[in-house]
Design a protein around this nucleic acid. Structure first.
Length: 497
DNA sequence: TCCAGCG
């Protein structure tokens, strides 16, 4: 599945076969520990590091102490493995990437980007340099992953060809729409068009047979609709040269979208003979990473240590709450009072039903907030997102439908009304979901705060495990009834005065 | 006991 653009065509393996293959001896050809100022990339240093990373060739395969890391004073560590003999030079400017003038204009004038962020500087040359190798890239929440693959899609498709050439698969409709919006802005001057493959609102429904074939160069969507379009020959895949998985760990997880993802891979494999695959996420747990590195064996890899993954600018807190009704009280008296003053708030709950329960409890108190979850009609989902993005609503109650990728700069407060638990377990945290949820605050290095509402011993067990996993002690708000305690916490987080 | 994703 690698090497769509390469001349050599090694063993043709289907995506599905790879899963069953025995342990890949992933040879760490190089690795680097590189600097990270999350907002300002130390690009010159990266240039050297990328070079070193392609030259160094340790023989052992991630042995006892793992691949060697380059020396760096900064606190963040990124581990990169390059494949084959390609030497990549980190891009200190967008101009270095030989992008079209139209695309550069979009980046500078429309997006207001002056230079690549760190993850962009490293991955963009890997994405854009032939032979086009697969890439799995992990980077912090809010670090600019979307730009990486959107830029990749925009620069690899031919605007004069009226047929899909790049597909991006997302776990939720909101994310697909958001990514499309970014692509349209960035590609404003390129003439490239994009279709969003998500189910229509009730009122817009037309039978698939009456739908015209897609002629846009890029298609971004959710797995079900993409499969439907492909199956009904409305989305030709023979010219697809780039396949992007956003939130890739979830798209490839067994209890996520793996089956759908494999299906789409196979369809493209059959008609286009494979293509370049890009996998992006802030999280890759060991199990998924293991699967992914077997699949993307011949590609480039960038991973971040889990201890380095929590955002420093986002302060996490835990609050002991005596019972469920007290949770409502906390939200009413503390979160509403302070929260909406400092910005926007997302309250995460476990089930669709609990979004309604929490909403009703707060409605009775005459507080305005809105609710989103997957069983709402598409038009309702869009309306609620729009109102929130416009800043019309300040507080949004949500299931994990918004846990990943949702990008709203004004969100600087996240409430875990329910702690994220792995499905089928009682007290096993879903570490990835936790990290994604808190990443909704503090977009692009902004300040933010998270309150974990803990009720009972199980919640505390879960919280402790999360602290251990990320090696990060979460301070406690002493008294849930104390206005001062919350005020202090928000001040410490830099959100108040 | 899910959360997403498919009429």
């Amino acid at each position: 599945m690698a090497d769509a653009g390469g001349k050599k065509e090694p063993e043709k393996k289907s995506w599905a076969d790879l899963e069953e293959e025995e342990e890949a001896k992933a040879k760490a050809e190089a690795a680097a520990e590189s600097s990270s100022s999350k907002t300002e990339p130390a690009v010159e240093e990266q240039a050297k590091q990328i070079e070193a990373l392609s030259l160094a060739a340790p023989e052992e395969e991630g042995g006892a102490e793992g691949p060697p890391l380059l020396d760096d004073s900064d606190d963040s560590q990124i581990q990169a493995v390059t494949s084959g003999g390609t030497v990549y030079e980190s891009a200190s400017t967008f101009e270095d990437l030989k992008l079209s003038p139209e695309l550069l204009k979009g980046l500078h004038d429309e997006m207001g980007f002056s230079r690549p962020s760190k993850i962009q500087a490293i991955t963009l040359p890997m994405i854009l340099t032939p032979p086009y190798k697969d890439l799995v890239a992990q980077a912090h929440n809010g670090s600019g992953k979307t730009t990486c693959f959107v830029l990749g899609m925009l620069s690899r498709v031919n605007p004069n060809l009226k047929i899909p050439q790049a597909i991006c698969i997302c776990p939720t409709r909101e994310l697909a729409q958001q990514n499309k919006a970014v692509l349209m802005r960035m590609g404003k001057f390129t003439g490239i068009t994009c279709a969003c493959a998500i189910p229509p609102a009730q009122k817009d429904y037309v039978p698939i047979s009456r739908m015209p074939p897609i002629t846009d160069q890029v298609v971004i969507g959710t797995s079900g609709t993409l499969i439907k379009w492909i199956t009904h020959k409305k989305l030709p895949t023979r010219e697809i040269k780039l396949l992007v998985f956003d939130e890739a760990d979830h798209m490839l997880a067994e209890d996520g979208f793996r089956t759908d993802s494999e299906r789409i891979m196979r369809d493209i494999q059959k008609s286009a003979g494979g293509c370049q695959v890009l996998l992006f996420s802030a999280t890759f747990n060991e199990k998924v990473k293991d699967f992914v590195t077997k699949v993307i064996r011949d590609g480039n890899q960038i991973f971040v240590k889990k201890e380095e993954l929590t955002l420093e600018k986002v302060k996490q807190y835990k609050v002991q709450i005596p019972d469920e009704t007290a949770k409502i009280e906390v939200i009413r008296d503390k979160i509403f009072e302070f929260g909406q003053k400092v910005g926007q708030v997302i309250i995460f709950v476990k089930t669709r039903q609990s979004t309604k329960n929490v909403h009703n409890a707060l409605m009775r108190e005459d507080y305005v907030c809105s609710t989103i979850q997957g069983s709402l009609d598409q038009s309702e989902r869009e309306k609620i997102i729009q109102e929130f993005k416009d800043g019309y609503t300040k507080v949004l109650i949500s299931t994990d439908v918004l846990a990943r990728g949702f990008d709203q700069a004004q969100v600087n407060l996240v409430i875990n009304y329910d702690m994220p638990i792995k499905y089928g377990t009682r007290d096993e945290p879903d570490y990835e979901v936790y990290l994604h949820r808190i990443g909704r605050a503090g977009r692009f290095g902004r300040k933010g705060a998270v309150f974990n509402l803990l009720c009972g011993e199980t919640d505390n067990v879960v919280m402790r495990k999360i602290e251990d996993y990320f090696q990060h002690k979460v301070p406690e708000v002493r008294n849930w009834k104390s206005e001062e305690d919350f005020e202090t916490a928000l001040k410490d987080a830099g959100l108040l005065e």
